[in-house]
Design a protein around this nucleic acid. Sequence first.
DNA 1: ATGCCGCTTACACTGCAAGG
DNA 2: CCTTGCAGTGTAAGCGGCAT
Length: 539
Amino acid sequence: MTNVDPLSFPEWPSILEALDIQTTLDKIGPKDILGKKLESIEKWDIFFRTYARYTGFSVRNEDVRRVDNIITMRKWVCSKEGYRREKFINMQDRQRTTKPITRNGCKVALRAVHTKDETSYIAKEFVSQHNHETASISEMNFLRSNRVVPDGVVAQVMSMNKVGIKTSNIVSHMALQSGGFENIPFQLKDVYNKVGEQRRLENSETDSEWALGYFDAAISKLRYNEAQKMFKNKHTSPQLPSLTDPVRPYYKNASEIYTYELYIKVANEIRKEAGYRISHFDDCGDHLLLSLIRFQHGEISYKVRYYKINNHFKCDCLLFETEGYPCKHIWASMKHFNISRLPPSLILKQWTKEATTSSTPPEQGVSNNQEQLTQMERYDSLTSDTNMLNFYASRMDSNFIFAKQEIARITAYCKDAFEQNLGSPTPVQVPHMGHQNNPNIVRDPVIVKTKAMRNHHGGQVEGLGGLDGKKSRKCRMCSSVEHDYHKCPHKLRPNTRGQSASSSQLASFFGPTTTNNHENTEYFVDDSTQESFQSFPFM
DNA sequence: ATGCCGCTTACACTGCAAGG
DNA sequence: CCTTGCAGTGTAAGCGGCAT
């Protein structure tokens, strides 16, 4: 079991002391928590979120009660608490395929109630047993309540957007410098959301146009996307049709076998199966030859061969042979023979969930996990701090020079200490704001000033969907509706390589990369590069 | 005190059209 | 044909009212 790194979570020791917890996090049970008191609701919040982070689940605020604007009770739950609401399960006139099921009725929860003397909050409910698998350390950054977009990152992305660099490429570069996407505590979409939020606040619409690509970053991104998909497949499941659907077993069977992306395609075939019927079949010795016709389209027919010896189906349409999953004609034939589960011969292993999960490296040992986790926490913390540093230091010549010198000094010191294996703790105490206090944690719908507050005027908030007239397009540089980005008079258009304003800004933001592969990389942006970057194969 | 439910809003995602 | 931005859809999240 892992323990909380006190350097990353400075509040943690005092909380543990106040709760008088002697056991490790994974062994905490109701008897350790029920009846215990903490001085504020925020401390309970920190406790439960840290507990969740280190035991592998995501937290949702489930309920809150206030009297005179003072919180009298709050309940936190596992994000898998409850079930999808009935109205979304039985939605009529559905226009899109359903989203994966993320809830499974998990009972894990904490409830803290204001004590009678109003001096503290007491735990009245605590459930620690999940009814599902929890996330591993390597999946920790995929959990929503663990995702953070540090202020420095937002500031840096916005600055670089202004000189025309795409958000996705900036994030790729950050990932590259951090040693991979798995080492940054946020996802690309979190950055889009956070930057978008900041832009709305500033009421300025600028974005980026030119691309910048790095092969290593692209590969890392592909791997990361793969890991994201694996996480999704492991922790969500497709929404199945209603219990009354006669071919529900087929959907269920498919959901158990295929990844979510492929399930959507297979489900589409199963759905279309109903449009076909077997007109007749002939016994050809080693196989049966079935003739299928489409309802109301009698002239369109398909032949399906059913080989009894190996329980295999082969269809004229060759969908299975080309795409790797059974076609509607095979599903219709299976139904005809009352075969309720897909025969193994029709399951291509590369499309199954098993194929992706089996490629996951085995979990590392306990001590390695602890080490890895501590290192990750500290890396997150340092990245957050240094991003802010970069932002301010790059704004003034004197700051820039000072920062460069200090960074060189500290780096040399740490490197020296590391190489001599002096180990931690390093005498250089890095000031830390506390991970869970970071307002940029990707908590779901964060600052929602008006969220769930009744709209007494009955209208929608301006700027959101539902406005009457269609919005006209705005220039991304100056927000004018008169022209678009490409014709904008404010657009920065450096002409020559190595002399442009953007190139120097780029160089100052990126700094010299230390990665071997890029030692000779020059950063430049000019008219021609826009084309070449956009056509970069991985971007 | 607690659970259930309805309502509102935000976020994630998709599809389409404009523009190059 | 490709990229980008926008609008629309699905649903998670959060809160408060009401019933138990």
